[in-house]
Write a protein that binds this DNA or RNA. Structure first.
Length: 220
DNA sequence: ACCCAGGGTCATA
DNA sequence: TATGACCATGGG
């Protein structure tokens, strides 16, 4: 471990500033899963347009998405970018849900299995990598899996708590080892990291008025 | 006209 | 295991 610091402190500082985020922005577990795929390397504002199209046409359902020709699905999600790739990924996800008896109740996926088993299963879906799997686990299935995204890496590298070259699994382990394994904590922590990232931790940092100034070396 | 966003896959070495 | 090309829209 590079940094022996208090890994809860950033969470507390962010919570103080921003308040509870109550993530994920989505009304149902299935919508969360769809959003997790659509937001891959894509601004959330674009994902919202795509999800709005699915809702407007009453296609925001597992069976509805499977019943749609791939090209038509791609057209509906066009604003989210990579629409051909993502149309295939969404149908792969829905096929997986159906094959696992969760087509009519996505939130029930893997209820009788361990978290690790569900994670490994999710990772077999084409288009579901580590971050997407963890986002689904945490925000759609209520499983305490810590989500690591580009903001997490960037923010904690700037804090000096990461070297920058760590793998996803290494970073996730650092958080999970140094924090109490708690659904609400993991949920809020990642949401707050994204909130901070959008305001202050773009590639060009805006350190002025950053909530983490108290513990950030670049603010001196 | 750039740069970037809440990644993942596949081919290649 | 580790890079690099590729996927594509919309907002700053």
């Amino acid at each position: 471990m590079i940094h022996p610091g208090n890994w809860l402190r950033p969470h507390d500082l962010l919570l103080e500033r921003y308040g509870p985020q109550h993530w994920w922005p989505g009304e149902t577990p299935f919508e969360v899963m769809v959003g997790a795929v659509l937001t891959q390397n894509t601004a959330w504002s674009n994902v919202e347009k795509a999800i709005a199209n699915l809702k407007r046409t009453e296609r925001l359902g597992c069976r509805a998405i499977l019943a749609l020709p791939e090209a038509e699905l791609a057209e509906l999600i066009r604003p989210a970018g990579y629409f051909n790739v993502k149309a295939r990924r969404l149908q792969a996800l829905c096929r997986f849900l159906e094959q696992n008896g969760a087509a009519d109740a996505p939130e029930s996926l893997g209820r009788s299995e361990t978290q690790d088993a569900v994670r490994r299963a999710l990772l077999t879906i084409n288009g579901v990598g580590e971050e997407t799997a963890d986002s689904i686990l945490l925000y759609a299935l209520d499983r305490p899996s810590f989500v690591v995204d580009a903001y997490t890496r960037r923010i904690f590298t700037r804090l000096g708590w990461l070297a920058g070259g760590e793998t996803y699994a290494e970073i996730q382990s650092l958080f999970e080892y140094n924090l109490k394994r708690d659904l609400t904590l993991f949920n809020e922590y990642h949401a707050l990291i994204v909130r901070l990232g959008k305001d202050h931790c773009r590639p060009k940092p805006r350190c002025a008025d950053c909530p983490l100034q108290a513990i950030c070396p670049s603010s001196t």
